[in-house]
Design a protein around this nucleic acid. Structure first.
Lengths: 344, 344
DNA sequence: TTGTAGGCGTTATCAA
DNA sequence: TTGATAACGCCTACAA
């Protein structure tokens, strides 16, 4: 039944007494091939379980109709929503393929080399690190590269920027406005460019408020709630005076770690400890207390990506295009106002 | 600077006065090539920005070191966690590539054909529909296919099964035990096999309880909270007697839609309406009220997948392997007990 | 309407 | 230690 050896257009041709070139044309619905032949070929192909070999085809045609997305946190539903939208809008003409670098430059390198080696038409990448090494790999392919997240001077290509610095700024400003001058910051690995930008925004808010920002309270971790939980517990062990009153996180999942710790220590959020998230996960609006967080305009971001992708593919513009969007503060319940008399 | 025309081993050879065959060996660190030549080649390759062509290489070697994952909901953090784990454990020897079918058989077909055409070593697929058409495409490749989620008789290959029927059973049983005999069910598209299984489990629980299950209360939708929200609102418009007292959902994100509607209508969960989720998103433990839900053992599921993948790749076993795991009920606060006097 | 020849970029075998 | 040649599966002139 199933032909063990691989079946190619040659196989089909042989078993039909046709040349492989006729088979090729028939399979591609070439008008020069007569209908009855086409039908015979199609039938035989189905019978033999023929699957075209994309590698041979693409090698020949120098075109793959493939989009590679390389980013860092497959478990972040905001980002996956964006990339899922792109995948969906580009299908079925283009197949989108997603890879997770997990904030690991080595893994990112493997994914870049893979995308390059497979001659993806578009490489949409959220760089793991602001470092020449990996981005340099893309140097000769800037026309098909889209940098996602943060602008990178190391390489000049189209980008879809999210203003993480502004996000950090409004996070810190909200805390400061409510009287939280001593805040801890939980984020991803410190070298992750979006987080670096975020910190810059926080610093700026502190500077504007005329308050020193204590950078020893910045903690880089992997983006799981577990580490945030551990770190929060350590902070909770401190004496009241040593303890920050607010925690600024760079992802709602990190804020969740704070929730966990608060539960364990029987601390009330926001009265005993205030917290702000980032990303605005769908569920964050319904936590107890409702999580104040920074919302990412995912629809707009996805649209920006799709615009650039289409322009590149249509070769309309060889010019570099940069789109930027601003996050917005979702003021909810997880930050107390120290400037008011505390109300029970 | 950047060589416009594509650079290949031939290009490198020409600019170095070497044959491309020598270049190839040098690039692959063949012991027969002398060190100084290797260095010259490597330097030139770097200078020219050479990127190996995976299509040519794979075409020749008939090996791609590639794993394709095809599933339906990129925004589900439980599933992406599982596939991210697999990707991570297989890297860097194997590159894992993820595609989202979005419960759309046509899109799924495109992804299957792509994985096949690219000769992925492993195709891990969560079928969108219990239908011959797409699965038949994989018929001649069962050795490299792993079915994820639900057993499919249409094709005989290794599988990683999640006992969704059991999940449906314990969901409904929990509702029934608490006196909720009239329950609505929110799920994905009705044809989605995991949801079909889930419903079977619900029916079984009702049958065992000697109660008729009203299948007109089963609603298939896309897995966004928006549709669940709309549908819940419609249910809330009914008179108290017509209204279900409980809503069984097939995903926490659908339960979220119920939360939204409850907020709008000022209905209390669980007193006015009870709800149970499915999947156990990280944040679900911290909603208000805490969401009772069905937990998927994601670590174990990922491990099962990795085991099978490694066995296939090592060709240790050509036997079909099937692993199954059971979800577990996380009893929290979103279901009221109608059998007790209601307490405020 | 169908067949032939050449080439896409590699690797592998064999010869030099 | 290096080079020439064939082959992987396919598409595309061009020839028949």
């Amino acid at each position: 039944m199933s032909s063990k050896g691989k079946v190619s257009i040659v196989t089909i041709g042989e078993s039909l007494g046709l040349s492989f070139s006729t088979v090729s044309k028939a399979l591609n619905d070439d008008p020069r091939i007569k209908k009855s032949t086409k039908e015979r070929v199609l039938a035989k192909a189905a019978e033999l379980g023929y699957t075209p070999n994309a590698m041979a085809k693409n090698l020949r045609q120098n075109k793959t109709n493939t989009i590679s997305v390389i980013f860092n946190d497959l478990e972040n539903p905001i980002l996956t929503s964006i990339f899922g939208t792109i995948s969906n809008k580009m299908a079925p003409d283009y197949i989108t393929t997603i890879s997770d670098s997990r904030f690991d430059p080595e893994l990112e390198k493997a994914h870049i080399l893979n995308a390059l080696a497979n001659r993806s038409d578009i490489i949409l990448i959220e760089p793991t690190i602001k470092d020449d090494k990996n981005l340099l790999l893309l140097k000769n392919h800037t026309g098909k590269v889209i940098v996602f997240g943060v602008a990178h001077d190391e390489i000049s290509c189209s980008s879809v920027i999210i203003d993480y610095k502004f996000g950090g700024y409004i996070s810190a400003k909200e805390m400061l406005d409510k009287g939280h001058t001593k805040c801890a910051v939980f984020g991803t690995q410190l070298y992750f460019p979006p987080f670096t930008e975020f910190i810059k925004g926080i610093s700026q808010a502190y500077t504007e408020a005329g308050i020193d920002f204590d950078s020893s309270l910045v903690y880089g971790m992997n983006s799981s709630s577990e580490e945030a939980f551990q770190q929060t517990c350590q902070l909770f062990e401190r004496s009241v005076n040593e303890r920050p009153t607010g925690i600024i996180t760079f992802c709602d999942i990190l804020a969740l770690g704070v929730f966990k710790a608060a539960k364990l220590y029987n601390f009330n959020i926001p009265n005993d400890i205030s917290v702000i998230g980032h990303d605005d996960y769908p569920l964050s609006e319904y936590t107890k207390p409702e999580l104040t967080t920074i919302h990412l305009p995912k629809k707009k971001i996805a649209k920006n990506c799709i615009n650039i992708i289409k322009n590149i593919l249509n070769e309309n513009k060889s010019t570099i295009q940069v789109f930027s969007s601003e996050p917005v503060l979702m003021r909810r319940e997880s930050i107390s106002n120290l400037r008011l008399t505390k109300v029970e």
